[in-house]
Amino acid sequence: MKRNISLGVAGATMLALLVTGCAQTAQKTAPSQSTGNTQPAAASQGTPRVAIMVGGLEKIIYLPYMLAENLGYYKEAGVTVTLVEESAGQDAEVALLAGQVDGAGGFYDHTLDLQTKGKYVESVVTMADVPGEQLMVSNRLKDKVKTLADLKGLTIGVTGLGSSTNMLASYNVVKGGNKESDYKPLPVGAGQTLIASMQNNRIDAAVTSEPTASLLKNKNLAFTFVDMNSKDGTQQALGGKYASTSLYMTTDYVKAHPDVVQKLANAYVKTLKWMSTHTPEEIADKMPEEYLAGDKALYIQALKGQLPMFTTDGKMPQGDPENVQKILSAFKPDIKSVKLDQTYTNEFVDKANADSK
């Protein structure tokens, strides 16, 4: 039976359906019941079921999650995956800690932030080593905002409060010599909700990813002020690489279900390798039509700019955790006490890479 994925459903509604085990997807079979940190439910032939909430499935930075499904790699790995849509990584983090989903698709920086709150989660697959984000400023402020210091007093759109976009906005404000309290982060999501907020002057700037960034430029609404999308731009803006797109899970879950985690690592490592050997056009052809935002050519162009951000092996790049810690510590001093070796593991992707050879 072909695996199904829930699309276009509000995260809260979808979670309620997952918890009761009665979710249905249009013209598809019922998705799995979320198992949180308990034993994964068995499918008809003993296939483990896993629910993963992703902070924006349509964002190119989270492309591997849907691509793995459309390539058939979850099924090949022997795991049934339900992907749950949410607009921000912060929402995925909350759902994970509540036991409503088994894994979260979000940025690695959440694992550090959570450890300071006594919550232990770890990245089991690290899919990218730059944020894939841009700090964009409204064109109406082009003559006013010239340096990072000029971010003081602005309302900056982020996907959600406490999200990675929020943290990156805070870092850039502080880097400009201001305090974190010197700007107002406003949760506006991504895609059309963010674009509408920029059009209506609800926000002065935004930290956002593709394809939203290209749409803002195409509509002549905003310009890139800080590039955290390319490797060179990230080096200049953040002083080094920044592990971003990850699959993270609670440490308790990873210890209790290493076989399930291994299946997921196998699927994602194979997906990353496939991405590294195929063209943007071929990748775009595998994505749902609605992810292309009505402009496939623009999506492909944006994809070309973002493909270099992805790892090819799912491993945590050397030096990335230390740089993420340094950046977050600029406005969250307690991050300095985080034990980095507890925030990620390469155990599962190392085995996946070895087996793929």
Score class of each variant (00 low, 15 high):
Ala243Glu: 04
Leu238Ile: 01
Lys217Asp: 13
Val260Asn: 10
Gln199Ser: 12
Asn166Glu: 15
Tyr253Cys: 03
Arg202Trp: 08
Ala237Ser: 00
Ala265Leu: 08
Tyr171Asp: 02
Ile156Ala: 05
Ala237Gln: 00
Pro211Cys: 13
Val188Glu: 09
Lys231Tyr: 01
Thr165Met: 00
Tyr171Phe: 10
Gln236Met: 02
Phe223Ile: 04
Asn266Trp: 00
Met275Lys: 07
Ala222Ser: 12
Asp232Pro: 03
Thr165Val: 02
Phe223Glu: 11
Leu272Gln: 06
Tyr253Val: 05
Lys263Arg: 08
Ser163Asn: 10
Ser181Pro: 05
Asn201Tyr: 13
Leu264Asn: 07
Ala206Ser: 13
Gln199Ile: 04
Val173Gly: 13
Thr159Ser: 06
Asp252Leu: 05
Leu221Cys: 11
Val207Trp: 01
Thr155Phe: 02
Met198Gly: 10
Pro187Thr: 11
Gly240Arg: 00
Ser230His: 00
Thr193Ser: 09
Gly233Val: 00
Leu168Tyr: 10
Tyr242Ala: 00
Asp232Cys: 01
Gly240Trp: 01
Phe223Gln: 08
Ala196Asp: 15
Tyr268Asp: 06
Gly189Gln: 11
Asn166Pro: 06
Thr165Arg: 03
Ala265Arg: 11
Val261Ser: 08
Val174Pro: 09
Lys175Cys: 12
Thr212Asp: 12
Lys219Asn: 14
Ser197Arg: 05
Gly177Gln: 14
Ser197His: 09
Tyr171His: 02
